[in-house]
Design a protein around this nucleic acid. Structure first.
Length: 280
DNA sequence: CTCTCCTCCTGATCGC
DNA sequence: TGCGATCAGGAGGAGA
């Protein structure tokens, strides 16, 4: 499940393989992989031919690849999207959606996506920051992330802290796994109302969010199954360091109490009943 | 404007 | 063995 550490691992992995290379043929194998690209899949392929990729950038869980034309390829991995560097002769993956061939006949870039929640598009003039993702907030590892502004906006909200952490327009890059892990580290239950959090509590939580994201990047992200891998097809190792996510019934590493699972927005939240008491 | 919730999708797994 | 139900969940957009 790609969140910031997984997308960042893909970004850094991709950079040396694609920057400076000129696209030759782009083949769209599944039209649904081209998302919110109004002119359609054929236009997507045509407009990219002959363009050179100049960088690989990220905002939250979105990637974009600026082009020498001033446009950019936007990509989101969704639940199961992968960007792989593969030799052109490698057999087609089962869920191969798009393949990018280059002028130099070197390894190609492939977009593979089982559940098709991910997708690609071209942003016209979006090399600096595509307008399509301008509503996504900076992530907490971004040097320009504004802690004070975040705290102020958070306390203005009338919602719960976990919902706020998952709101990409408030803070980006955090998904279900790292939200649960950061809340456990901060000893906060996800249902805590945001407007009652003190300034120091928000600062502590932000510190834990940063710590868990940074630690996960060091491990190459979290892989539960073959759905998330880096650009060379390798798994990340942060699943070994998870304290609550997916650990229902196992003892809390701090106090030994069995980790609980609760339903939340049609999915699951994991927490320690003792360290993270539910607000009354 | 703000907030909540539904929907998109496929494959693994489980119970009958 | 087979088949239906359930779960996984990011993000946009509908609806309140």
């Amino acid at each position: 499940m790609p969140e910031l550490p997984e997308v960042e691992t893909v970004r850094t992995g991709l950079t040396p393989w694609v920057v400076g290379r000129r696209l030759h043929t782009v083949e769209v194998r599944h039209p649904r992989a081209i998302r919110r690209h109004v002119p359609g899949a054929t236009h997507f392929a045509d407009v990219l031919a002959g363009r050179t990729i100049t960088d690989v950038r990220r905002r939250g869980k979105y990637l974009w690849l600026p082009l020498d034309s001033g446009d950019a390829i936007i990509g989101h991995l969704g639940m199961s999207g992968q960007l792989l560097i593969q030799p052109g002769e490698a057999p087609d993956e089962t869920h191969l959606r798009v393949r990018f061939g280059f002028d130099d006949d070197g390894p190609e870039l492939r977009f593979i996506d089982q559940r098709t929640f991910g997708g690609l598009s071209v942003s016209s003039g979006g090399a600096e920051l595509p307008s399509e993702i301008a509503h996504i907030a900076r992530d907490p590892l971004d040097p320009l992330f504004d802690d004070r502004e975040f705290a102020a906006r958070l306390r203005r909200r009338r919602t719960e802290i976990k919902r706020a952490l998952l709101d990409q327009s408030l803070i980006s890059g955090v998904g279900n796994i790292y939200a649960d892990e950061a809340l456990w580290r901060a000893k906060l239950h996800g249902a805590r109302p945001t407007d009652a959090l003190t300034g120091p509590a928000v600062a502590r939580l932000l510190g834990h969010v940063r710590d868990v994201l940074s630690a996960a990047i060091k491990e190459g992200g979290t892989s539960f199954d073959a759905l998330y891998v880096n650009v060379n097809g390798e798994s990340g190792y942060f699943d070994r360091a998870l304290n609550v996510y997916g650990q229902e019934g196992l003892p809390c590493a701090r106090c030994g109490t069995a980790v609980r699972r609760e339903s939340f927005m049609n999915r699951s939240s994991f927490s320690c009943p003792r360290c993270q008491p539910r607000p009354r």
